[in-house]
Design a protein around this nucleic acid. Sequence first.
DNA 1: CAGCTTTTGTACCGAACGGTAGGATGGAGA
DNA 2: TCTCCATCCTACCGTTCGGTACAAAAGCTG
Lengths: 207, 207
Amino acid sequence: MNTPTPTPGRPRAFDEQTVLDRATEVFWRHGYEGASLSTLTSAMGINRPSLYATFGSKEQLFQRVFERYRETQAAAARTALDQPTAYAAVEAFLRASADGLTADDHPAGCLSIQAGLACSPENARITEALAAGRAATEAALEERLTRAAREGDLPDGVDPRALARFVMALSEGHAVHAAAGATREQLHASVDVALRAVALRESTNIS
Amino acid sequence: MNTPTPTPGRPRAFDEQTVLDRATEVFWRHGYEGASLSTLTSAMGINRPSLYATFGSKEQLFQRVFERYRETQAAAARTALDQPTAYAAVEAFLRASADGLTADDHPAGCLSIQAGLACSPENARITEALAAGRAATEAALEERLTRAAREGDLPDGVDPRALARFVMALSEGHAVHAAAGATREQLHASVDVALRAVALRESTNIS
DNA sequence: CAGCTTTTGTACCGAACGGTAGGATGGAGA
DNA sequence: TCTCCATCCTACCGTTCGGTACAAAAGCTG
């Protein structure tokens, strides 16, 4: 479990995962640019040189934070997409998303959205990394739905890529809403509406 | 048209609306905190004291920018919601949104989303103002759909508030996608999927 | 032209930013 | 107990941040 090899020199006074958790919360709440080193070190309970010795820079710290975040997100997405039907997979994805966006063990919303949709030019890489993370989730969704299309498991006339984009966009919109204070019930009610679009039978347009 | 009253003193060398347009683009592209005064004044073609004499502060400048932005957004929403049926209103809203998010006379996406979903605590008012603007749009949508529900113009079992939230969330998600490079066609394909949820007949769930 | 008023440009303010130097500190091995 | 070495902590670096003082410039009015 823990490292049995006794490294020479003074041992660290903090646990890396713990301080990463604290940093995650700060970035989540204030965004990348809004999270100052003073706020970060204060929340992490370490001082600047420890942060730089351990993580390299503010940007590298954030990349570590986001990497960890992505892993848990990806695991949750994988679980949802393992459902046997497209409808069940989409519902599980959106339900898990709504729950995650309003969980009380972390700030409301989604780190990918909160941390930096727009940044100053020198931090453009942050924006790109976040977008890449979201794109990866959408790709997993698309892959699952493409398989569903092959299996005849999608409503007629529904393009799996469009459906993946729709589901992902809705989830991101819910993230925006959650960050602004929407409740879990409100998000699930929106999911109820969305699922009508994934139901099997072709429904009739208004005249 | 123009001011016929000759104000005393040296006349301004810039047009207020023009420099507001430039400021809008900078905030849109870099976010509130990512938009430095140097970048702003440089893009606006004026120097700092002129900015402060005219607008008061960076925050007040942004409020002016956002106010103008809201007016055009609200006008577009009003046009869409004036459609005779709920379905047509929702479609017009989402189509106009998709077009606006990918128009080439301004940065991709939506100022409300780009400017500052998360900020440092001292700029929390910016985040709140943006959320309030989006909430106002959602309220207009909800009002229209509540009327539709009264008129029997909504599918069975659809709560107008939930539908309004769904439409708004999707639009915000599309804003996130547009900022990350999604094309207009991709957004409209997602709208195609979404509209299935608003279609009149109750559709059958998967078994 | 003189006098008044407002804007313009330069040059600056204190504070906060991300990042770092270097001595004090504490645990393992000899 | 002494040595070694990575970590800890104070205090600082140069730069940029949002915001401003002040004097030169540019219009009107007389």
